[in-house]
Write a protein that binds this DNA or RNA. Structure first.
Lengths: 224, 224
DNA sequence: CGGATCATTGAAGTCCCTCAAGTCCTGTGG
DNA sequence: CCACAGGACTTGAGGGACTTCAATGATCCG
């Protein structure tokens, strides 16, 4: 971001929000007056179906922009929840339009982010539809790890990952039991070890191969 | 669209493209120099995995905007193929940036479209992850029908739907055989009849109920 | 008429789900 | 300090939804 853009964004910023683990930040169907950029912490995007089942749509990491759907469509398609203490940068939703009039580069960044999310969800659909359990779990862990690398969260081939197995299961459309057993297999083969909230991947390329992933490079991502 | 915007878009338009059924319009991983708006016809967005499996990401209808990912990210996340004769309005990709500088309302529409796609894919993920076969098929047909209604493609509770069962199967992550049997069940119960390329849904509300869908209203969609 | 494509149907197999315990750990209160 | 409850993880067994295999119709077209 250029200094000029930075100045603009600061003017735009309403404040900072710190939430505890378990807090719901945005609700599906709501039209939040606020938008957020994640500064610190992790969370979940999820949807609830009428039959009570939960689908985790994505994991939330620092740098993520929350509330874009409400910002342009007037309604969130999913909820967002913090899984650990999070700090968020708060913006005023009604000011979005001034982006487009006064800071086209910021407006472009928003479209860019939306396109990145669309790109990711396309891959997720392909995973749920075409990958078996082992490939799915490998895919998810690989994706998360790549994201972690880009954010500097990976230290010595390990990163903090404070989610529950149930979260991963709900993200991949698998049962908790089967997710557990699949993780156990990956652990015993030393391809991926996720214990005590720490994810360790000794050989990302090997895991990526198992996940039918060829491109292991992180995506270039704008910041809002 | 206002007349002024229309004039701007016309200036932007490079030409029209007519393609036959089976033509690939955009390729996954490519960086197409052109963007398209669908004027007529239908198609498929799909991804191919390394193991040869195909995931249909979405069905393409008139009014859809193709190539946004390449436009902002420089790379398509999926391919697009025509399933019948299609006519497309062609734009020059390199001109996208002038949207943002000169026509903020058009730029906003692009973000809006991206958000709609993200919203839809979120639902698709939930379907693949949490709905069983019958619910999935019902969901897909309901979604398609709603879209058809909004486009004026539905006449007397029937619309043209020139896809193969294999396409629907690849969209829902089901086998062709099971998709066929599920369609047969819906047909015998008169909830949805899809034969000879014609989809007939006598009672959309009932089918939507089976699909665990509550909101049967079409989404408000900008045109580019 | 032969070949190709798509739809349909039956049968056998499997991946994954559900059910059901049991372990480990943490926090809480007596 | 120990008893107990709760939550997450683990593991085994049985069942079912869906897949794969295989064969048959149906339609179209050169």
């Amino acid at each position: 971001m250029k200094p000029e853009e930075l100045r603009f964004m600061r003017k735009f910023k309403v404040g900072e929000l710190v939430v505890d683990a378990g807090t719901t930040i945005l609700m599906e169907g709501s039209n939040s007056p606020q938008l957020f950029t994640v500064l610190h912490g992790m969370g979940l995007r999820y949807k609830l179906l009428e039959n009570g089942k939960r689908q985790v749509v994505n994991f939330v990491f620092p740098g993520d922009f929350l509330g874009l759907q409400a910002g342009v469509m007037g309604e969130m398609g999913h909820s967002v929840e913090a899984t650990m203490k999070m700090t968020l940068c708060v913006f005023d939703r009604t000011e979005i339009w001034t982006f487009y009039k006064e800071q086209p580069s910021r407006a472009f960044a928003m479209t860019w982010l939306a396109a990145i999310e669309e790109h990711f969800l396309g891959e997720a659909v392909a995973t749920l539809g075409q990958r078996d359990a082992q490939e799915s779990v490998a895919w998810a862990l690989t994706k998360i790890f790549i994201r972690g690398q880009a954010l500097g969260l990976v230290d010595n081939s390990a990163m903090r990952l404070p989610f529950k197995q149930q979260d991963l299961a709900d993200a991949l459309g698998l049962s908790l039991v089967h997710t557990n057993k699949t993780l156990a297999r990956l652990k015993s083969s030393q391809l991926a070890v996720w214990s005590d909230g720490i994810l360790r991947i000794p050989d990302l390329k090997k895991l990526g191969g198992l996940a039918l992933l060829d491109d292991l490079s992180p995506i270039n991502r704008p910041i809002i």
